[in-house]
Amino acid sequence: MSETLLPFSVAIAYVLTNIDGLLVFVALATAGKLKRVGVGFLIAQSFVMTVAYAAGAFASSLPVHQVGWLGLVPVFLGVRQLLGEFFTSNARNSKVTDRLLGLAVVFFALSTDTLLLLAAFFADSSKAFDHLVILGALLAVSFLLIAGTFLSRGLGFSLNTIRKLERLTPFVMIMAGIYILMDTGTDAF
């Protein structure tokens, strides 16, 4: 993959692994809490990026020939999500508090797959490309924030369309994991 495509690949993976967070964002924001929900979302995503960067930095201290094996984590998570789609119901009961910290915790909990995926991108990429991974994450967070705001105001995709996009998440995880397992031009040497 060309280094110029890295931010867009990261952004697409980030967005598609956060569709569930987008649904929660829209649901909470339509209840008249748009500003608080937006701030909670941004706090959570800032924490996701920080923890992913730290985890990626730690993992990149491992021997180079072993770092690529981190790609197995998103592949495993994607396969697990696919199996979950076929063998369990997706009914979710979520209890959300009105406090900002509660909102941030909810969004963070919904972003654990994104955190692992982003950490693997950081670990697998050379330090010289970390800024591109960060750029991709920032693009994704901006898109999710804007999309959530518009959707909560009745514009954009229908919630049914978003739920269909959420079904792509396991495939994105698997493909990102395969990318990390492969030797590419952005890998650490």
Score class of each variant (00 low, 15 high):
R92V: 13
R153M: 15
I180L: 08
H65V: 08
L5I: 13
V37R: 13
P74A: 12
R36H: 07
V133C: 03
G185M: 06
A52G: 10
F41C: 11
I12K: 10
R80G: 05
L115Y: 14
T184D: 07
M173S: 04
R92F: 07
L82T: 01
S2R: 03
L101C: 02
Y179K: 00
L117M: 09
D113L: 15
N93D: 10
L62G: 07
L135P: 00
L118H: 12
F122Y: 12
L168S: 05
L151F: 14
P7E: 09
V26Q: 07
F8I: 13
L115R: 14
A176H: 00
A109N: 07
Y179D: 02
L117R: 01
F8D: 11
S142E: 03
I134F: 11
L16A: 15
L118Y: 13
K164Q: 09
E3N: 06
M49Q: 06
F121Q: 03
L138N: 00
V75E: 10
V67Y: 05
A91L: 10
K95Y: 07
L70F: 00
G136S: 03
V51A: 09
T149C: 14
L132N: 02
A120I: 09
L72Q: 06
L115I: 14
R92T: 12
K127E: 10
G136P: 00
L116M: 13
T114H: 03
V73W: 00
G38S: 15
G71D: 04
I134Q: 04
L115E: 15
L138C: 01
V106W: 00
T184S: 09
L77K: 03
V64Y: 07
M182K: 11
G38I: 10
P63G: 09
F143M: 08
F108H: 02
G71T: 03
L70T: 00
I134L: 12
L132W: 02
I134M: 09
V51I: 12
F87D: 08
V37C: 13
L155H: 12
A27C: 05
T149F: 15
A59W: 14
Y14E: 15
V37L: 14
L42F: 15
E85A: 03
V172A: 05
V67M: 06
V141D: 03
A176E: 01
V67L: 07
S60H: 13
V133P: 01
I178M: 04
F189L: 10
G40K: 10
G38E: 14
A59S: 14
L72G: 10
G21A: 10
V172D: 02
G102M: 05
M49V: 10
D20E: 11
L165M: 14
A13D: 10
G71W: 01
D187Q: 08
L34M: 06
F8P: 08
G78I: 08
S9N: 12
R163L: 04
V39E: 08
M173Y: 04
G185E: 09
L139D: 12
G102S: 06
H65N: 09
Q81C: 00
V73D: 06
L117H: 01
W69Y: 06
L135Q: 02
W69M: 02
L110I: 09
S61Q: 12
R163D: 02
F143P: 00
G148Q: 14
L16G: 15
V15P: 00
M49H: 03
G32V: 06
G185S: 09
K35N: 08
S111V: 07
I19R: 13
G102F: 02
